[in-house]
Design a protein around this nucleic acid. Sequence first.
DNA 1: CGAATTCTGTAACGCTCGGCACAGATATGG
DNA 2: CCATATCTGTGCCGAGCGTTACAGAATTCG
Lengths: 209, 209
Amino acid sequence: MRAGRPRGFCVDDALDRAMTVFWRNGYEGASMSELTAAMGINSPSLYACFGNKEGLFRAVLERYEERRKTFMENVLAAPDMHELARRYLHGVADFAADTSGKNPPGCLLLQSGLSCGEETIPDELARHRGEKEKALRARLEDARGKGELSKDADPAALARYLMTVSNGICVQAASGASSTELHDVADMALKAWPAGAPRKTKSRAKASA
Amino acid sequence: MRAGRPRGFCVDDALDRAMTVFWRNGYEGASMSELTAAMGINSPSLYACFGNKEGLFRAVLERYEERRKTFMENVLAAPDMHELARRYLHGVADFAADTSGKNPPGCLLLQSGLSCGEETIPDELARHRGEKEKALRARLEDARGKGELSKDADPAALARYLMTVSNGICVQAASGASSTELHDVADMALKAWPAGAPRKTKSRAKASA
DNA sequence: CGAATTCTGTAACGCTCGGCACAGATATGG
DNA sequence: CCATATCTGTGCCGAGCGTTACAGAATTCG
């Protein structure tokens, strides 16, 4: 164990509370006083732990990705590509409409700073969204190689389509759309998905844990 | 415009310049000093003309809608509903990818403040986006009444779908997607659009969430 | 034990923010 | 040509921002 006075707060809990503030107010709209108040700590503790506001934000993003990891794993583990698309879009709809916690509806990767005074924030968020798209594309390319997807399908375009609809759903959620409205949009978007090998679709809906 | 010293700048030009700043930096990220510098005026002139920062922003939004008016008119004047969807999505793709002016790629109604410290800004923007959705829905309802759209089609859901994809396209554009990528997404989204006039439409069961 | 180390709370820093008083400049109307 | 009205530029305001200096409190190590 390390010497010195032990930290008086749980880092992950603090990050979860900071996440809510960034999510609701955006990066610039979240003031340090709001953040420290929500986290239940004083600013020197925050600066000692995270460096500065941007460092805190990056830590929040990592925490966010960690919490969404099981969802993406579940999506990528889909048995066929139509099921992958279905799990992804309906999972996003579930997630975006979820107001059971303290977080506002929508998605942190959009709400916290689509545009902003410091260019580095939107760039970082775009990078994170790009990572998700890349994961989807890799899975689709793999499926195409294995014959689970038509040879004339374009994995990159399909992945981009999923991300586009997903981001649109998040915006709709932030604008106040209901859960069923979002799922209807997801269903409609799935009609554009290539038929692929399997013709049988199960209509089972599962919420993201 | 009676007595008194005449205004030394063109209001619309100033609004166009302010629009670029809000677009690129977001509402909160746009400082008054940046705005006045871009508009080529001093702050007292700005305050005398627009009241305060939020007043300026609202004026910018009006100007924006005015500039987009002919586009929406062209969309709503489409001869059939598939053409309406096509014009809308590809028009948005064109618009979002356009970097010929000084405005960044994407859409002001999203970039300038999806989330923000002052709740009133995201609300106002959501209202503006809602107006567009309402216009599309009204046109679709009208078309359904005239038999140009299947009776079991849902105008509200279709309008929401268009808005969702449109917003997604704008996010993709802001993330750096190319024009052809955006048009590919628009084409793919159009595959989900109900067929022209025939009586047969597949209605998929809604998710049980 | 004392020394070293690490975290915490108080209080304040310099800076930029949005906004405005004021006086000079430039127009109109009588 | 004066009275009135509107706009412009200079300069400044209090508030809040992100950030940090400092000293005391709590722990481990020798």
